[in-house]
Computed example of a mutant assay.
Amino acid sequence: MASVELDKLRKVYPNGYVGVADASFEVADGELLVLVGPSGCGKSTLLRMVAGLETITSGTLKIGDRVVNDVAPKDRDIAMVFQSYALYPHMTVAENLAFGLKLRGHDKASIAGRVAEAAKTLELDELLDRKPGALSGGQRQRVALGRALVRKPQVFLLDEPLSNLDAKLRMSMRVEIARLHRQLGATMVYVTHDQIEAMTLGQRIVVLDKGRIQQIDTPMALYEKPANLFVATFLGSPKMNLLDGELRAGDEGLRLRMGDGVELPLSPDEATRTALQAVVGKRLTMGLRPEDLRIDGKTGAAGLAAQVEAVEPVGNEAFVNLRCGEGEIILRQPPHELPSPGDVVQLGHVPARAHFFDSETGARLG
């Protein structure tokens, strides 16, 4: 396996559109790194640049110790798994697995050994004589993974490989890919628009928006300390609640005065307090995860009255949708003693779990 290093990688199309703007990061040898972001953010373009399917406008791309900017895709020693399985319908599973090796001139014994090894790893042993039309979606995806696996490349590139599967199959295939990565110790770059896939699979995540990297970190570090409003609202389901207002200071400490005149007392930690003191009198956005809000203020400072609009019990938990002044709030709580639509309740929050952002730039404060 090998590392992958991007140094100010840039893609500009003939019409001047910037698909990827100065992407710089390193995928460590044996790491599973996920590129995540909304449609059109540049994640697939970036992956295709690594694969050699998109030309690089500027910057440097290294796989291992070799600069590969001008190296043909077939000579980069990478294997790619696409959203479409792209299996040959007239070939059996064994023939699909072996096809790429035959093109590269491997001998029959080597091909048979690699196909058998991949089939065992992916539990395809009993399916080798079947054709793709006789396979389920999950089985076809495993064959597509196996076709990459037999190559024994330096780097695996996976472009939204689970998008065509239903929710149950996606979950089982996520486990399959994570197991495969642990077993092989392979270097993998995985592209998805699904933030749950990104959080559950990635050892590190690169969050992109409009062609630019917003933040790179471990899944929980991104969730607990998002660098800006985009990352804060993109990761997490349901998404983070945002409260906008003017930051005020007085004898009772810092308070967020919202548009409806309600003032919410803030209790940030010392480091955050110092950062907030510099923006007193300016617009501020406070973020609260749904699990950090509670009805009746049992876990923190009360001060927000809200009306229940809908209650969504989903088994082990419930989502409560509320109207607070001009804004909407959603909280997550155990599915017991739930309020009813129309109830007016008092909300409390966990002060230590609040996030603060500059309303104009979106940058995190503190």
Results as ranks from 00 to 15, higher is better:
residue 168 K to L: 03
residue 338 L to Q: 09
residue 87 L to G: 05
residue 121 T to W: 01
residue 72 A to D: 12
residue 356 F to T: 02
residue 253 G to W: 04
residue 276 L to F: 11
residue 281 G to E: 13
residue 250 G to M: 01
residue 305 A to S: 12
residue 74 K to A: 13
residue 158 L to G: 00
residue 191 V to I: 10
residue 224 E to H: 15
residue 52 G to T: 07
residue 238 P to N: 11
residue 156 F to D: 01
residue 322 L to Q: 11
residue 298 K to H: 13
residue 210 K to L: 14
residue 61 L to I: 14
residue 222 L to C: 13
residue 276 L to E: 04
residue 359 S to L: 10
residue 315 G to V: 11
residue 61 L to M: 12
residue 42 G to E: 08
residue 325 G to Y: 09
residue 108 K to D: 13
residue 17 Y to L: 15
residue 26 E to K: 13
residue 315 G to H: 14
residue 186 A to F: 08
residue 87 L to P: 05
residue 253 G to R: 03
residue 280 V to F: 09
residue 143 V to L: 06
residue 104 R to N: 02
residue 144 A to E: 02
residue 55 T to Q: 14
residue 65 D to L: 06
residue 204 R to M: 15
residue 32 L to A: 02
residue 183 Q to R: 15
residue 306 A to F: 06
residue 129 D to C: 01
residue 362 G to E: 07
residue 94 A to H: 05
residue 92 T to H: 08
residue 135 L to P: 07
residue 66 R to E: 13
residue 276 L to P: 13
residue 354 A to Y: 07
residue 338 L to M: 05
residue 140 R to E: 01
residue 121 T to K: 08
residue 308 V to C: 07
residue 165 L to F: 04
residue 100 G to K: 04
residue 198 A to I: 06
residue 239 K to T: 12
residue 133 G to P: 05
residue 148 A to F: 06
residue 137 G to N: 00
residue 90 H to L: 11
residue 338 L to C: 05
residue 283 R to H: 15
residue 193 H to Y: 07
residue 273 R to T: 13
residue 278 A to E: 13
residue 197 E to K: 02
residue 14 P to V: 02
residue 352 A to E: 13
residue 261 G to S: 09
residue 258 M to E: 10
residue 301 A to C: 09
residue 173 M to T: 03
residue 226 P to C: 07
residue 198 A to H: 00
residue 276 L to T: 05
residue 93 V to F: 00
residue 323 R to G: 11
residue 219 P to A: 12
residue 8 K to R: 15
residue 157 L to F: 04
residue 119 A to L: 11
residue 206 V to F: 03
residue 29 D to T: 08
residue 124 L to G: 00
residue 52 G to A: 03
residue 262 V to G: 07
